[in-house]
Design a binder for these strands. Structure first.
Lengths: 241, 241
DNA sequence: GCCGCCATTTGATTTTGATCAAGTGAAAGC
DNA sequence: GCTTTCACTTGATCAAAATCAAATGGCGGC
């Protein structure tokens, strides 16, 4: 294993970056101390209330972001208001669509969140000069593509029960990558958001929750806190044998 | 506009590459004559019958490919056989998932096709040395991600009729990027494949075709040839206002 | 030309999830 | 403390698409 560059000159790294949870997992991890300092000059942290919009569908992209805390949902809306969540981003994911001036989706905090913004043109310039950074962004794009295709199978071919179980499994495995115990977690989405993620209605989502609860696949407290006694059993209900 | 490198030393480019339709649109377009020559040493062209498998879900990736002619479908299968097409690739798309040893999807020729294979390790090495090549692959990954997310909206929120109309619109706009007349084309997929793409059954797909035909949105000859008298009208039926 | 095969269409019925409509329950405001 | 609100649940009915089943129609082989 090679030693990461920023660990060699740790003291040269901006203080806010040194304390940043996204530094290693996020895109910043591949930057040198100098580059981080440069990027940091133009970046700013923001706290987002649940529901706050980061960018809207069709808007001009002026910022990219790193998610430092919380969950951000990516959504597409049809002209008549029908809505579909097309991705969920967890800290320390990168947020943004490089190389396109206009956003084809909207991004909105699903939970109370914190993000670090940097101007599009600064990062674009940095990407051109730093193949390692483009590589990191490429990796993230491919990860998102894999996830999108997994979800297409769920949307196209699974039953309502399997969809809800798949969602619970997804959250269990993504909400806290540090934690070894995935069996207990808070849902980052409301029933309405879950419905928009699964291509179902609120009522159907609710009914399937109740059904999974009655079958002892999950326990639910306060509508948001879920406990999974047997993860393999949940996976089987999700259709992932 | 800068002149492309390979056009300066056109005569140095391998003959097969010079005649290759994928050279400009595909990933090879960013390579120098020397790099093309190197890559060409290890690459091989193949003709694929409709239905021929390029790679199977779970298999080890040994080759990447360029699609030179035809349409390739990317599919995911569940343990019980339910199937979802998660992407359609048209010439001159790149085919492969960089940086992962095992394929999460299977790729199969939807029509009679022709592809150009190159060994994974040769291209991987070339990518490391050629930021411009990684940029090109990154662009393609982002394009596929945009398409996947568009399709998630279709799968999750559209009616059967809208799904079928969306499919026809997709094909009309992708099947022959050269042609200005998109109003007449052959479907590259069977009804079964269309069903797997749309998350529907064969019967429902067939009924929606009949319905669109009766409403004069499309004309159909020989099951496979489609004519669209009014593309905007088709778009409206697809829910894209 | 006729047969058999396969893809596609069409029809009848069932199932799943959507829609419409009340109810519940917890937290915020008066 | 009571009401209001909002998210969620539950129930009754409806509609869309799945399923089951049969018919059609083109095409290659004989």
């Amino acid at each position: 294993m090679e030693i990461r560059r920023q660990d060699i000159h740790n003291s040269d790294i901006p203080l806010v970056c040194r304390a940043c949870e996204a530094r290693h997992g996020g895109v910043c991890g591949v930057l040198t101390a100098e580059q981080l300092t440069e990027l940091n000059k133009h970046s700013s942290r923001h706290r987002l209330d649940s529901g706050a919009e980061v960018i809207g569908q069709g808007e001009t992209v002026v910022n990219y972001s790193n998610i430092m805390r919380g969950v951000v949902k990516l959504t597409k809306v049809m002209a008549d208001g029908r809505q579909q969540i097309v991705g969920l981003q967890f800290a320390p994911d990168f947020l943004g669509r490089p190389f396109l001036a206009e956003s084809a989706i909207s991004a909105e905090a699903a939970t109370e969140s914190e993000i670090c913004n940097f101007p599009r043109n600064v990062l674009d310039r940095l990407v051109k000069r730093t193949p390692e950074l483009e590589h990191r962004l490429h990796q993230q794009a491919l990860k998102e593509l894999d996830e999108a295709r997994d979800w297409m199978l769920t949307l196209g071919r699974k039953s309502a029960q399997e969809k809800v179980a798949s969602f619970l499994y997804l959250i269990a495995t993504h909400i806290d990558p540090e934690s070894l115990d995935m069996s207990s977690f808070d849902l980052p989405l409301s029933r309405a958001d879950i419905a928009d993620f699964l291509g179902l209605t609120i009522e159907t989502v609710s009914r399937q929750f109740t059904k999974l609860r009655k079958e002892n696949v999950i326990r639910i407290e306060n509508n948001r806190h879920v406990t999974v006694p047997d993860m393999d059993r949940l996976m089987r209900h999700a259709g992932n044998d």
